[in-house]
Simulated scan of single mutants.
Amino acid sequence: MPGQSKKKLSATEQDELLQVLQLRFQKNSKRHQGIEWKEVEKKLLTKKEKLWSLNQMEATGGEPDVISYDKKTGEYLFVDCSAESPSGRRSVCFDKEGWESRKEHRPANNAIDMASEMGIELLTEEQYRQLQQLGHFDAKTSSWIQTSGSIRKLGGALFADYRYGTVFVYHNGAQSYYGSRGFRGCLRV
């Protein structure tokens, strides 16, 4: 993968990111009750490649924060917690196949490839609904979410948003893109 060796933050970048993450963590304690920052930070410092991915999430407007801890795997789940779909990840098709199927007006990228390049994954429907339990996200935007192979095989892809006090999951052609649709990612650390 091009640029693989560059997927490392300088000491200054690492310190700045950790400060941003810690401040957000402390400001939004309801998202991760029972989880202590010092434990999250300790884990991050042993998995520095994850810091690069979190920095990518931050740089594209995602405002990543911890929303849960998986006792089985011992991993913290960081998710984009920006109020709206991250601004630096909008106007993208669902995947490369959808992007290639467009004969004209192709967007610059697609959600699946962008997420892969960043070292993150699109949220599942379950994760999206879990996030919505912590606040109201995507009230003006929408976000592509993971889509089953059977739906994708037929040319479709799923996206979700929050309207009328409800989380909606919809379908669209994977080749479609809109200025208000991006994607939210998750990262296990």
Rank of each mutant, 00 (worst) to 15 (best):
S29P: 07
R24K: 11
F168N: 15
T12P: 06
F168T: 11
G173I: 03
R184G: 09
T60P: 02
G74A: 04
E75P: 09
K140C: 11
A160L: 05
S150D: 15
K153F: 06
L122N: 04
S101Y: 02
R184S: 08
H136S: 10
L44N: 12
P64H: 06
S68V: 00
E39K: 11
R188P: 14
L23D: 15
Q175H: 12
E63Y: 00
V40Y: 07
G3P: 10
G185W: 03
L134K: 10
N172H: 13
K43R: 15
S150W: 11
G3T: 00
A59G: 12
S53A: 10
E13V: 05
D15P: 01
Y76R: 06
H32G: 10
E13N: 15
E41R: 09
L134F: 02
S143Q: 08
K96I: 07
E41M: 00
S116L: 10
D80N: 08
Y178P: 09
S150L: 07
Y162I: 01
L122C: 05
Q133A: 10
T60C: 05
L123T: 13
C81H: 02
A11P: 11
L134H: 04
H171E: 15
R31T: 05
G149H: 09
T73D: 13
Y164Q: 15
S180D: 14
T147W: 08
S143W: 07
T73R: 08
G61M: 00
I67E: 04
M57I: 01
S91I: 05
F159T: 04
D138F: 06
E41W: 01
Q14V: 03
N110S: 03
S10I: 02
T46G: 13
K72R: 05
